[in-house]
C-alpha cells in the first residue's frame, strides 16, 4: 500500500450554466518520502488534484486514500502551501506561522519552539516580530512554507508556490525551498506549469492531459552522479533530455487545443 493512492478518481463541477468534467479516471500512487511534481496544460485540474488529496474536495467517483484510509476532510497529516502567501497583516511573522498550530489546537509552546528554530534555520531569525509588510516577496513565501512545516505534516502539497514571484526570486527560492524540502524528508506533491521547476525539484514528474484530464505519462528523474540542487540540476545533460521529452508531450496538447 502506498502512502497516497488515487483510484479511478473523477471529478465534475456543476454550475447553473454547465457541467464541467475536470478529472476522468485518475490513478496515482505516491510513496512515503517521494517528491512528485505534477505538470499539465493550464486548466487541466492540477490544483483540483491537490484539493482532492487535501480533503477539501470530494471526488464525484473513485476514491482518495491516505495511509489506506479514505480522505473525507482536511487531514492533520497534510500541509497545503498556496500560490500566494496569504500572510495576515494583523499578525507578526511568528504569529502568522503559528496560525495552523492554533487552528489545530496543537501544543503552542512546542509549536513556537519549532517555529523559531525553523525561522533561524532558514535565515529569517531576526524577523519573528516583524510585520509581513516589511518582508520581500521571497521572504514572505519562505514564511508561508515555515507556516506549513510547523504543523508537521507528513505530506506537503505545493500549489504553484513560486508563480507569483519575479523570475530571479523564483529561481533562488525554488532552489532554496527544494533544498529545505529534501532535508525535511516528507512527501511532497508540487503542482506547477513550469517544466524546469518540476524536473529540477522532483523525483518523479507526472504529466496530465487536457480536460477532462487523467495521468498521461510519468518520468522518473534520475541524474547520473547523485541529486544536484535545483539550480545546479539545470546544467546537467539529463536536464535537457527530460525537458525535451516533457515539452514534447505538453506541446501536443497545445497544438490540439488550437
Amino acid at each position: 500500500m502506498s502512502q497516497i493512492e488515487l483510484k479511478d478518481v473523477s471529478l465534475r463541477y456543476f454550475t447553473l450554466k454547465e457541467e464541467t468534467e475536470a478529472l476522468r479516471g485518475v490513478n496515482l500512487a505516491i510513496e512515503e518520502g517521494e517528491f512528485v511534481a505534477i505538470v499539465g496544460p493550464s486548466g487541466c485540474g492540477k490544483s483540483t488534484l491537490l484539493s482532492l488529496i487535501s480533503g477539501m474536495l470530494q471526488p464525484t467517483s473513485g476514491q482518495v486514500t491516505l495511509y489506506g484510509n479514505r480522505v473525507t476532510e482536511p487531514s492533520k497529516r497534510v500541509g497545503y502551501m498556496l500560490q500566494h502567501d496569504y500572510l495576515f497583516e494583523w499578525r507578526d511573522v511568528l504569529n502568522n506561522i503559528l496560525i495552523g498550530a492554533e487552528v489545530r489546537s496543537m501544543n503552542m509552546r512546542l509549536a513556537k519552539e519549532r517555529a523559531l528554530s525553523l525561522l533561524e534555520r532558514y535565515g529569517l531569525g531576526g524577523f519573528a516580530t516583524h510585520n509581513p509588510k516589511q518582508l520581500s516577496g521571497g521572504m514572505r513565501q519562505r514564511v508561508a512554507l515555515i507556516r506549513t512545516l510547523v504543523v508537521e505534516p507528513d505530506v506537503l502539497l505545493l500549489d504553484e508556490p513560486f508563480s507569483a514571484l519575479d523570475f530571479q526570486t523564483r529561481l533562488a527560492l525554488s532552489d532554496e525551498i527544494g533544498t529545505i524540502l529534501r532535508e525535511q524528508h516528507r512527501t511532497v506533491i508540487l503542482v506547477t506549469h513550469d517544466i524546469s521547476e518540476a524536473i529540477t525539484m522532483a523525483d518523479r514528474v507526472i504529466v496530465m492531459s487536457n480536460r477532462p484530464s487523467s495521468v498521461k505519462t510519468e518520468h522518473r528523474i534520475e541524474f547520473s552522479d547523485g541529486r544536484p540542487s535545483p539550480l545546479l540540476a539545470r546544467q546537467r545533460p539529463e536536464y535537457n533530455e527530460y525537458f525535451q521529452a516533457i515539452w514534447g508531450e505538453l506541446e501536443e496538447h497545445v497544438r490540439i487545443s488550437e
Binding site: 482536511p74 492533520k76 500541509g79 500566494h84 496569504y86 495576515f88 496560525i99 495552523g100 487552528v103
Partner: peptide, 25 residues
C-alpha cells in the same frame, strides 16, 4: 478567498475562520 482557503486547509471551524480571519481582516 485565499485567506479562507488557507484556514480551510488547516481544517478550521467556521467559528475559527470568523474570529481569526473575518473579524480581524
Amino acid at each position: 478567498k485565499g485567506k479562507l482557503k488557507l484556514m480551510e486547509s488547516f481544517g478550521a471551524s467556521k467559528w475559527q475562520v470568523l474570529t481569526k480571519v473575518v473579524l480581524p481582516a
